[in-house]
Simulated assay, not measured.
Amino acid sequence: MAWENQTFISDFILLGIFNHSPTHTFLFTLVLGIFSVTFMGNSAMVLLIYLDTQLHTPMYLLLSQLSLMDLMLICTTVPKMAFNYLSGKNFISLASCGTQIFFYVSLLGAECFLLAAMAYDRYVAICHPLRYPVLMSQKICGLMAAASWILGSLDGITEVAVALSFSYCGAREIHHFFCDVPALLTLSCNDTLMFERMIFICCVIMLLFPVAIIIASYARVMLAVIHMGSGEGRRKAFATCSSHLMVVGMYYGAAMFMYMRPTSERSPTQDKMVSVFYTILTPMLNPLIYSLRNKEVARGFMKIFGKGKSEE
């Protein structure tokens, strides 16, 4: 389509999810509360694992990366949504929209691969404990974490480059509280079918491939746990793995529901509600799940907190 027949726009309007009714004002306040808990919880996890040398193990180093990703993810969407709601100005520039897409897509993709790395870590720890220092050395752990960030960023760069190469005309209203690619594509003047198919293929790679690794890892883990002679060891293994599986189930379940449905079955309201779950609620639940169900994390908090009190 010729450029002269299109109306190029540099700003979009984010319609958001809240109006100024009493009910929505309460829900907005609740979201700010969740954001505060998420920010403090994930920041505390990152700092705790950094400060407590006893937690400088592959499992907790990967967990610190998960907390960092969750912290960045919620900061990518909620502050802008809150600013728009409080100021009444719902505009977002094309550059800001592209930046939001990059961080959002990159962090989601990075978490997909990181959760698979965490499943592999648990598999090695339980099924091959004697070889754990070799199979999950600090170097291998660092490479896994770096690979997660790099692969996620590559996906983010690709989607931003293609999405911003389209021209947008007509209505400027994005039916979402942040710049999500599927919601943005509905405003494009171009035929986006090939790009939508590319997104689906990326989702298959970034969701189903890690899920296959996770299922294979935990299938082996469950078999090993069942054959454990020690009841205490069995309970500890189940506690550690169940925490990870809770996170995996919430995260991948919502992401698959969001991005692997046919376009004809999608609705803006449904997409916004599901997005709230895995961009706002899941980042809050991750540190709570790991800290409440993990004695070493609880011990680390008490150690750091006790040290801080003794120095006052």
Results as ranks from 00 to 15, higher is better:
N190L: 04
G233Y: 01
C203V: 03
C241Y: 07
Y218S: 06
I201Q: 03
N190D: 15
G231F: 03
S243T: 11
V204Y: 06
C241T: 12
A224H: 01
I199V: 10
V211C: 15
T192Q: 05
I201R: 01
V225G: 01
R235S: 15
S217A: 14
I199Q: 15
R234S: 06
R234K: 15
V211Q: 14
A239G: 05
T240S: 15
K236A: 13
R197L: 11
D191Y: 02
R220P: 07
I214Y: 00
C202Q: 14
S242R: 02
S243Q: 15
L187F: 10
R197G: 01
C203A: 14
G229S: 12
C202G: 14
E232H: 13
S230I: 02
R197Q: 14
F238Y: 13
L223I: 04
E196D: 13
S242P: 02
R234W: 03
K236Y: 10
I214E: 05
R235G: 04
S230F: 02
A237R: 04
F195D: 02
R220V: 00
V225T: 13
L187W: 04
G231A: 06
V211S: 14
S242T: 08
A224L: 01
P210W: 01
M198S: 08
I214N: 00
F238D: 09
S242Q: 05
Y218L: 02
V225P: 01
L193W: 10
M194L: 11
M194I: 05
I226Q: 12
I199P: 02
R220A: 10
S243Y: 03
E232Y: 08
E196A: 04
A239E: 11
